[in-house]
């Protein structure tokens, strides 16, 4: 633009400056563009990375979804099972409740029976006590009876002996004054009295056996044999009997019972011996 003189020059300078500035600006912009481009490339890259990551995450998610589905199925099965078990439980509970009621009833019955049993037991105990009392009374009554038997038979001996003595005095001293019939009658009295004496002796022996305390003592049997021999002295002399008891020791015995036994044995042996032959008894 030539028309522009001075001012034109100035305008040119300015224009140049403007142009330089614009160029600078342009370069700057270009630089910025480069940077922006670089930035973009970076961003793009980043985006790619993120997309890849997302892909992986998605796969993971899909897998998790799948698993979830499986779990849901399992859960549903478990739920069905549980529901079934719940049902069974309910049934059992109902049965249990019935059983419990039954048990309660049985318990009550049991308690009733126990109460009845206690009463019955008390009754029994009472009856037992009564029985024992009766037994004790019976024992003491028996003892009394035996004591009575002993005392009465013991006391009967004396009047009986006197009857016998008086009868023999009459038979001895009044022989001439008695008729045959009278003598016969007195002999009958004598025989009856003799029989009575035997009965009393037996009663005495019996009550002695029953009333005497049964205690075993270690006793020299020779002592017992000697006592029996002394008691049977007359019969032994009469039968010319010898009693050999040299080889007996001592024994645990009830003395009076053993004496009675030996007395019975020896007196029977003497009674039933042959009168022609002197008896010999070995013990």
């Amino acid at each position: 633009m030539a028309i522009i003189n001075k001012s034109n020059g100035e305008e040119l300078i300015i224009m140049h400056r403007e142009l330089a500035f614009q160029k600078e600006e342009k370069e700057q912009l270009a630089n910025e563009l480069v940077i922006a481009l670089k930035e973009l490339a970076f961003l793009k890259e980043e985006k790619g990375k993120r997309a890849a990551e997302l892909g992986i995450a998605n796969i993971e998610l899909a897998y998790q979804d799948d698993e979830k589905g499986k779990r849901a199925i399992e859960l549903s099965i478990a739920n069905i099972e549980l529901a079934f078990q719940g049902d069974e439980k309910g049934k059992r509970a109902a049965e249990l409740s019935i059983a419990n009621k039954e048990l309660l009833f049985q318990n009550e019955e049991k308690e009733k029976r126990a109460a009845e049993l206690i009463i019955a037991n008390k009754e029994l105990a009472f009856q037992n006590e009564e029985k024992e009392k009766r037994a004790a009374e019976l024992i003491s009554a028996n003892k009394e009876l035996l004591a009575f038997t002993y005392i009465s038979s013991h006391d009967l001996q004396e009047p009986l002996r006197k009857i016998q003595t008086f009868v023999t005095i009459i038979l001895e001293n009044e022989k001439e004054n008695l008729s045959e019939k009278g003598k016969y009658n007195f002999q009958r009295i004598q025989m009856a009295a003799g029989r009575m004496q035997l009965l009393i002796d037996d009663l005495l022996a019996f009550s002695r056996i029953s009333t005497t305390e049964l205690t075993f003592e270690k006793i020299d049997l020779k002592v017992i044999v000697d006592e029996v021999k002394a008691e049977l002295k007359d019969t032994i002399l009469e039968k010319h009997a010898t009693i050999d008891s040299s080889e007996i020791g001592s024994a645990k015995i009830i003395a009076f019972q053993f004496r009675q036994l030996l007395y019975n044995l020896i007196s029977n042996a003497l009674k039933f011996s042959n009168p022609e032959i002197p008896s010999h008894i070995s013990i």
Partner: peptide, 9 residues
């Protein structure tokens, strides 16, 4: 022992 027969007595 007191005998029951007088003669024995």
């Amino acid at each position: 022992r007191k005998p029951s027969e007088y003669l024995q007595f």
